[in-house]
Structure formats: structure tokens, C-alpha cells
Amino acid sequence: MNTVLKCNKMTMKFGGLTAVNEFSVEIPEKEIFGLIGPNGAGKTTVFNMITGNLQPTSGMIYFYDKPIVGLKPYQVVSLGMARTFQNIRLFTNLSVLENVLTGFHHKLKYNLLDTILRLPRFSKNEKIMTEMAMDLLESVNLQDKANHKASELPYGDRRKVEIARALATGPKMLLLDEPAAGMNPQETMSLMYFIEEIRDKFDLTILLIEHDMKFVMSLCKTIAVLDHGVKIAEGKPEEVQKNPDVIRAYLGDINA
């Protein structure tokens, strides 16, 4: 099995504070990998380092054996890594369709001259992109709302648009930051099936951060636990659940 993502002793220091300390992980292809930990453990910082939003203070990150430390976020995206945000960040004034279309930006096949002169290459590619975006919206069941403004959608639909938008970038790996946050149990259940479904349909490797333990435990094959920037456990869900370090991190020391 191929390793998709490999982090080697990744460290992030903000001034005197070490947010993430020597975090190492290897994620194989097509796995759904969970990253959990108490609030402020450094999970989102790990995400930001992998996607290039933050440059790690030290350590290496490999994506399909290619080092990606030092690349700009848009360059990381063009290598095949897409993400969603903890607090959904859609382009609120754009329509649902336009939101998804922005995902194709990095492989745009026409240039400014084609745009200004409306050359055949422009209309041809706009048509292809629109069709592809509609297909993606169909796979998240939102094709009827394509022309709605993103800000008009209910919460659950917005999450789906955000995932569809991430899928439009043509990722090999998808990073989901708390996808189930703010969802009710039914929505969470359907999201779980949905994530498995897109994993199989688009051949994705998925790394997700989540607080909903039931969600993580039933969806992820492997889980890593982060506490105060340090990885304290990694393994199958049932192993992690029983790990005394993990219990201590979440519930505090019983003997203290």
C-alpha cells in the first residue's frame, strides 16, 4: 500500500509557545484517518501546516513522496490536496454553482486573451467546467440549488457545497476540519455515509478532525490523538479508546 501523506517530526512554534511538537504520521492510500484531541491540542495547526497555510518551524511533510514544506497553499492544492474549514467558509455572494466552479481555477485551460476576446476556447471550457460542476453538485444532491446564493442555503447543505467545492479541485487527498460540527444526529449519520461514498467514488484518502467520538470511532480506521501539541496515541479506534493516556487527556488524571 502506498503512503499518501507522511509527516516527519513536524513542529510549529509561535514565539515561545510550541503548538505542535514533533508530530509524525503516515497515512496510507484510501484510508479514512482521524485526528482527535481536546480543544487547543493543535489539530488545526497540523492541518494548516499540511496545506501550506503555515510553514512548520522544523520537520518534513511528504505528499506521495514529494516534499511539500515551503510550497504555497495554492501549489499544494494543485498537487491534489483539498481541505474544508472548521467554520464553513463559502464564497457567500457567489451562487452554489460558482462556488464549485472556483475549485477548477488551478487547472484553468483558457487565458486572459481568450476571456477578453471570447475566443472559442473560452466558451468551450466554460461549458465543460459547468457540466463538471453540475455533476459534482448532483453527487451531493444539490443540483436543484445550483443557482441559489451560497448564503441562502441551510447549514447541512453548505457543508456539502464546501465538500463539493473541495472535490472540484480534483484532490487525491481530502482534509476535513470538523465536518460534523453543528449537525444533528441524522445529519451526522448521513454525512458519515456520504464521506465513505465520496472516498470510494473519487479514490480519496481522507484525514479528518472531529470532536464527535461516535462519528470518528465508526468512520475512521486509524486514529491519532493529539494533546498539547504532542501525539499521545495512534491506532485502531478500540485501542485508542482504552489507552490510559487518552483517557487522562480527555478526563484529567484520576489520581490528581
Binding site: 496545506t51 497555510n53 504555497k72 497553499p73 495554492y74 492544492v77 494543485s78 483539498a82 481541505r83 474549514f85 467558509r89 463559502l90 464564497f91 457567500t92 455572494n93 457567489l94 460558482e98 466552479l101 472556483t102 475549485g103 477548477f104 481555477h105 488551478h106 484553468l108 483558457y110 486572459l112 476571456t115 473560452f122 466554460e126 467546467m129 467545492r165 473541495a166 479541485t169
Partner: peptide, 24 residues
Amino acid sequence: SEFGRAMKAVRDDEDAAIAMGINT
């Protein structure tokens, strides 16, 4: 055009635009 959509994306949420592979 896609350039215009990207411009509006930058306006609405620059960080999300970067995460979508847009060279803002």
C-alpha cells in the same frame, strides 16, 4: 469568467480562495 469568479472569491473569503488553489 473564471477570473471574475476568482476575484469575487478573494473578496468574499481570501483564505478560502487560497485553499481552493487560487493564486490570490
